[in-house]
Nucleic acid binder design. Structure first.
Lengths: 245, 245
DNA sequence: ATCACGGATAGTGTATACATCATACGCATC
DNA sequence: GATGCGTATGATGTATACACTATCCGTGAT
């Protein structure tokens, strides 16, 4: 069976490459949440000893992507549905901070670049809306957000944002498949862009916060739909009559 | 030279204990920012092999407390003054989120406990103000904040807050030595407490944000003073011009 | 004197071997 | 048949040994 792992580049320490490989695999969803990972298996798949693997695992443990039970095993972190809200509250706070800093610090060139990304996304959303299945690329949304993250000019904040993103990647792939989501997302981005362009940090903060909260709600609806598909009743929660918030 | 390190409890993996020992030493300021750390030295001081040390270091690297230059060495992270603002913006965002969640989720018992902590701090601040040197304990302020962090009932947020706290510990020890700071801090806490008690999440968020921003300003003034002392003083906090913030 | 170059050194990077521990299974017992 | 205990198993935890590489420093040429 083709291993889910592979060492990408050469010219780095095995530990670093192992870290990247494992992290990439986790972000790609190659490992399922809750799945157990064996040091030896990973080591063999990558053709290295267990030592670099262990060090990489410790880093991923600290990233919150893996959970380690001493003397027993390593497990892929799962985010229970009731913690989704928490994660998005955190994400909202960090992204809002990034937006505020971006409004203060982005260069005119960066703002220019941001407007281009926004324009592309708008065009893409328009096309997507016409299609039956909305094959929306998370990539478009990502580019916009990432441009803001970088525009904040804060290495520390960037690191934290990458960590949070790593934790929610799995969910974000769902979110943007919500019908009509692409247009809503693009509209939110336009608002944020305007605030940044106007160098209005407080407003950028506020709008980003709303934008993320919006995404959170879309996601939670999505999760509800998955948990209780149209027909079968799931285990918990006395049936709530479908009312759209 | 009595080693700056010691393995605390038994009954855990050496890696875990090494992590705790190193982290504790870093938080206590036993290692100076920018100082180099040698795996072998740490291992010898703790009486373990280099392997657990390396794994602990990888975790601390991911925590942002250590920086690793491949094939060369490990260094204690330094926070350049110009990044202090960024760190406090991040801290403010996270703490505000914690306060908002606390307002929503704290039990009545936890709120009761919070009011006790606040009362103690007020009393302590009053005493401190009367003393010539204000030996203010960061501990008092910490208890209040920590109670809110726990009251947010979000394990994930708690972890992030601990990480941020670890990064700013060194600075926070300075901040609260600022003259008249204890009283200001206590007043801010009282405001926050009221918002939480009233279950007003938005207000708790706002007030916490202001509170942290306040601390940031105090710290930056403090740093300015240190950088450019009135009459060329020594390294540690000697002369303090008594002016209330 | 300054700069370029190459070996010496010390510390990090990796592999291997062994120790330790949590779990699971089988057996005896109630 | 259900329950509790002891051993077997396999993975993790740790130590040791060796390989590699970035830096430092002495040497020589310009």
């Amino acid at each position: 069976m083709g291993s889910r792992l592979s060492l990408l580049t050469d010219q780095q320490s095995l530990q670093e490459r192992t870290y990247q490989a494992l992290r990439g695999a986790l972000l790609d969803g190659a490992y399922l949440p809750g799945e157990r990972i064996y040091e030896g298996t990973v080591a063999k798949a990558l053709g290295v000893s267990r030592n670099p693997v262990r060090e990489a695992v410790r880093r991923l443990q600290q990233d919150g992507l893996l959970q380690v039970r001493p003397h027993y095993g390593i497990y892929v972190t799962t985010i229970p549905p009731e913690e989704v809200e928490d994660v998005y509250r955190i994400r909202g706070a960090l992204e809002a901070t990034a937006a505020a800093l971006a409004a203060e610090r982005m260069t005119t060139e960066e703002i220019q670049e941001l407007s281009l990304i926004l324009a592309e996304q708008k065009a893409a959303a328009k096309v997507a809306a016409a299609l039956p299945r909305e094959p929306v690329s998370v990539v478009q949304a990502d580019r916009f957000h990432h441009a803001i993250h970088v525009g904040a000019h804060s290495p520390r904040l960037l690191v934290l944002l990458e960590q949070i993103y790593a934790q929610v990647t799995h969910f974000r792939n769902l979110t943007l498949r919500y019908p009509g989501r692409a247009a809503v997302s693009a509209a939110g981005h336009a608002d944020i862009y305007e605030a940044i362009r106007a160098r209005n940090a407080d407003e950028a903060d506020r709008r980003m916060r709303l934008h993320i909260d919006d995404a959170r709600q879309a996601l939670q609806h999505q999760l509800d739909d998955v948990a209780r598909p149209p027909g079968a009743a799931s285990h918990d929660a006395g049936s709530q009559t479908g009312e759209g918030a």
